[in-house]
Nucleic acid binder design. Sequence first.
DNA 1: GTCTATAGCGAGATAGAC
DNA 2: GTCTATCTCGCTATAGAC
Lengths: 230, 230
Amino acid sequence: MPHADSSFQKTPAARKVAAPKESPQRRRRLLDAAEELFSSRGFYGVTVRQVAEMAEVDVALPNYYFGSKRGLFDAVFHRRAEVLNEARGAGIDAVIAAAGDGRPSVEDILHAFIQPVLEAQASSDPGWRNYCRLVAQVNSSAVFAEMMSTHFDELIAKLISALRIALPHAKERELYWAYHFLTGALTLTMADTGRIDHLSHGLCHSADAHDAYRHLVTFFARGFTAAAND
Amino acid sequence: MPHADSSFQKTPAARKVAAPKESPQRRRRLLDAAEELFSSRGFYGVTVRQVAEMAEVDVALPNYYFGSKRGLFDAVFHRRAEVLNEARGAGIDAVIAAAGDGRPSVEDILHAFIQPVLEAQASSDPGWRNYCRLVAQVNSSAVFAEMMSTHFDELIAKLISALRIALPHAKERELYWAYHFLTGALTLTMADTGRIDHLSHGLCHSADAHDAYRHLVTFFARGFTAAAND
DNA sequence: GTCTATAGCGAGATAGAC
DNA sequence: GTCTATCTCGCTATAGAC
């Protein structure tokens, strides 16, 4: 007699609620906590125990979900890179399309490249601000630099191509050097260390991302244009 | 009878060699090893045991000489900061003095500010190259950012003062933003991650510090001058 | 999927012999 | 000043109960 097994007394709905539990939320909370901690102390300065504690999950779960500490780090870096790349790439495409057969403006191209980063840093979601700081740290590190290539080289190639259309007489080397300076300035801005506030005695606020990025676009649009005449 | 104690048979010169042993050399080797390791893996990514091993000294000596791992880190950062600041500050002073009552050129000022860093990075002493990478990492880190203030704020104030003389009509805010972009570009160059080589398919070489810094000075001299007209 | 318990290791620092 | 030995702690990762 296939009978009174207690599990048969649960309704399907009740079983469904209990079974997968809150796994997706926990995964997300782990990524958020890891993002915050890694962004301020780097890969080696954070322990999986700290991440688990901040995410309010068991210490074993980071390894269960992501395989290893490094797997967690990679997952954090990957998550928002995709979102950012999609927005930045689409923006550049739109600027080129809008120009038709003419030349797109350098300023419009840089704006498209930079604007999604600005929005990330000005976002009310602290996760995006943490992510910006994480990227800044990875970009200055020798050991993790290959992560930048993996995630951002395609987008950068698109930026350079667009600038080549806008500045057809520019030498390739000048374009790359100018890009190098741009990315240095951009990532330091993303690092948001508060140093500009301090140095300028409060005249400049790193918290005002809009102000920072407006200056950034203006400054480098001129710089690219001037460098193209060398 | 004050007699045949074996130590009395050593000449004073021999005693001198044996007594303080090789302490100064060991201190130096520790700083060099720590510099190399910290510059590539950061503070948390290095152990005192690794430093001791690379310096070929006992594991207890880093703590004996520097008190703690953090003390060692600070000592590494401090050692060359002084040398660099002295050279950069003197260079700026010389440019202002040479201009007399006239205006010094922006390009000369930036050259004085940047040139000693170039020499450090192009140096045959690998310690200087490691130090540049270390500064780049510290500058992008939120937790260690106060080390930058402690060691470099005075020099930066001198740079800004000099630029104020060269560009008397520039708004303060524009000067500080331009400085912010300059330091981002400079520190990324110091990080020497090899990314520009890769991105430019070999057109630009981060190993060629002279080329990098020549572009840097030209690019930012124009940038400061243009920003001063805003 | 979750959690307890622990394996296995290596960290930073120091006491005390020399 | 140097080195041996060790204390104490916390780490990453996993085996196995639930």
